[in-house]
Design a protein around this nucleic acid. Structure first.
Lengths: 178, 178
DNA sequence: CAGCACATGTAATACGTTACATGATTAC
DNA sequence: GTAATCATGTAACGTATTACATGTGCTG
């Protein structure tokens, strides 16, 4: 399947870009639904070049620093579009270490369990706040704008986070009414 | 970190169990928030035995078939409890292949994009229905009951699935009103 | 007696993280 | 001139999936 390959291909398709900048994107804007480290990105770029899906131009930064600016080839565009249209079964496991812990923490003292949920709630609220403040930048987006993808994905993240917070509230309620 | 280690330890702590039955649990009841294949489970069980966190008794099934029934040791209980109390930063990437695709599918023909969302919506609704019908079994749970963990985790899955479906509706709306 | 579920393992490969390694450029 | 950022790569290790490999027990 190799999703990373297509994630990189998709990003290069948007704009000519270096490996370094790809790395930043995987840590920043795209990080909510995909991520990758440098040590995965550089080898994957090499594979993409070998497969002639992307090509690069060496650009001199300053006096001597060589950077490779990647761009997509026609073959790359074709393969990206094929992948975009593919359909897949839903992933039925979304690993969540907090959920794993509370699953086993059932017979913990009630106060400790509540404290655990409260800590998690705070974290989620902070995350939600970061998302909502980021959303303000996208207020006037529409489908043709370049940022439509970013916009709806941010919406998705907010929706998910809110649901998680509601779930935590529910859990606390269940624990308390016992 | 080795979450699998503690997932297995936690399950063995609940009940004496074989590797085979652990495998089933990771594919069934626990699958929504954690999973593992047989090929991870058996080696992990061996490590747990070596670390004296679990021990096993050989039980004869039928005439000759030997099965290993694992149970947790005191040392195992201690290590499990330590782990349960540990705190961790939120995982900021929840990989989602559908989201990755729609992120790049922005400049796809509108009809195809809508079809993609509709397909996903159907899948999510089916999943949600499986969850809700499963929930009926747990209607009268309370914190002391053995199934409290299963109950709240199922609640979490339902909450997440509903949010996802709402998000899809939102996206469709945004695409259409453009 | 056939087919499915029970039962336990290993091998090869793929995917992901942490750490190592090096050097240039820019902004203060 | 020094610290942060830009820039590219590799090595070692940890985690996860697919496939291989084998045999017993139970139900119809």
């Amino acid at each position: 399947m190799n999703a990373l390959k297509y994630a990189i291909l998709g990003l290069i398709n948007r704009n000519r870009i270096t490996g370094y900048d790809l790395t930043k994107i995987f840590n920043d804007s795209v990080a909510d639904f995909w991520s990758a480290k440098q040590s995965q990105i550089y080898p994957e770029l090499k594979k993409l070049v070998d497969a002639k899906l992307v090509e690069y131009e060496i650009v001199i930064q300053g006096e001597v620093l060589e950077k490779k600016v990647y761009s997509i080839t026609d073959k790359g565009k074709e393969e990206l579009n094929n992948w975009l249209m593919q359909d897949e079964p839903l992933d039925n496991t979304i690993k969540d270490i907090f959920k794993l812990r509370v699953y086993f923490a059932e017979n913990l003292p009630q106060a400790q369990l509540l404290a655990k949920f409260e800590k998690q709630r705070i974290k989620c609220i902070n995350k939600l706040e970061r998302y909502t403040s980021k959303l303000e930048e996208y207020q006037h987006c529409n489908i043709t704008s370049e940022d439509f993808g970013d916009f709806i994905l941010l919406k998705g993240a907010i929706s998910r986070e809110k649901a998680y917070i509601e779930w935590i509230k529910d859990c606390v309620k269940y624990i308390n009414t016992k």
